[in-house]
Design a binder for these strands. Structure first.
Lengths: 189, 189
DNA sequence: GTCTATAAGGCGATAGAC
DNA sequence: GTCTATCGCCTTATAGAC
């Protein structure tokens, strides 16, 4: 119950964690329930005791992402200066550069793939992105007289665009280049 | 033979054009050969006379994208000043902002979805992006003493990140905001 | 070259024993 | 609550008439 990664965690938790990883690495469409069940060491038929459909399992993954972002932003709030909080945010993506170069940003790629749907899931998948943008805008409000919403978008667009290019070109250094930008360093705040 | 969009174009051309649109709007996985055949007004079984598999049809779509980018860049080359060429490049994406807000950048989303594969198609899908980056770097070389490759990535990352956020938030104005940036305006070249 | 009919396989989802 | 067996559908791909 307490272990968030290992085999001792609850079955529901193992299913969500396994699905999260597989969706990121292989994409939504290529990931089957059989794959997820195997990764979580749960028999296929038992998945439906915890989730009534594949879509609902994906929804749980999105909710888990939102939870992770929320935790991350709360951690960043402990940093005294707002400008340093923003720099630390960008540094998080730089630290994930190897994974990003292979599989892209987990939030960005999932939003991109689910955005093509017209059930509610397309908008839900934007949740983590909305959270980060709103938080960033709040930090910027302390720093600049310019439009915080617009500056937040500029900042995170650089991160997401950098992640996309790093992934397409399989080049982790692109993420570092983005993190070193004056933009990301909040020199213009 | 000469019509590139209408029903008079050759079947192969209609198939590629229809597939290109459907892959952009619905994604690779959700698009079936039956959908493509119907959009192109070609019987399902006949598709296999022109393409030996779905993957090869997707490959043809990527090749078509590369062709389109090549044509676009040649057109931009007619603009006298390199700085104006770069601005015009970014403006192209701004002009597509409504489509981008609904379906994302055609090149970016396709690269993102195909990047999760390990056959050759993942790297081929990065072709349009590579072309644009190389061309941008060449323009920047006329303008700045800084690293042209890095500046080109900064510029196009802003465009691609903006497209991703515009799509996730369903907000076309984000694309305009990116186009108005000093970065995109090449103020720092 | 064109098209219909269908084969072959994989998937999400369910039934029902335990 | 757990798990096995399997159903029914959809998709890619092919066989073969025209």
């Amino acid at each position: 119950m307490t272990d968030s990664q290992g085999a001792l965690a609850g079955k529901r938790e193992r299913l969500v964690d396994g699905a999260s990883k597989l969706l990121h690495h292989n994409g939504v469409a290529a990931t089957t329930l059989a794959d997820i069940a195997q990764a979580a060491d749960v028999p296929l038929g038992n998945v439906y005791y915890y989730f009534k459909s594949k879509d609902e399992l994906i929804r749980a993954v999105v909710a888990e992402h939102i939870e992770q972002v929320d935790t991350m932003l709360n951690t960043l709030d402990a940093i005294p200066a707002p400008a340093d909080r923003l720099k630390a945010l960008v540094r998080r993506w730089d630290h994930m550069r190897e994974v990003i170069a292979r599989y892209g940003c987990p939030f960005g790629t999932l939003a991109c793939e689910l955005d093509r749907r017209s059930d509610g899931l397309d908008l839900e998948a934007a949740g983590p992105i909305r959270l980060i943008l709103d938080w960033s805008a709040a930090q910027i409000q302390h720093l600049s007289s310019a439009d915080p919403h617009e500056l937040a978008i500029t900042l995170f667009a650089a991160v997401q665009g950098g992640a996309l290019l790093a992934n397409a070109l399989r080049d982790p250094d692109i993420m570092s280049g983005i993190a070193d930008l004056p933009t990301a360093q909040s020199a213009w705040f």
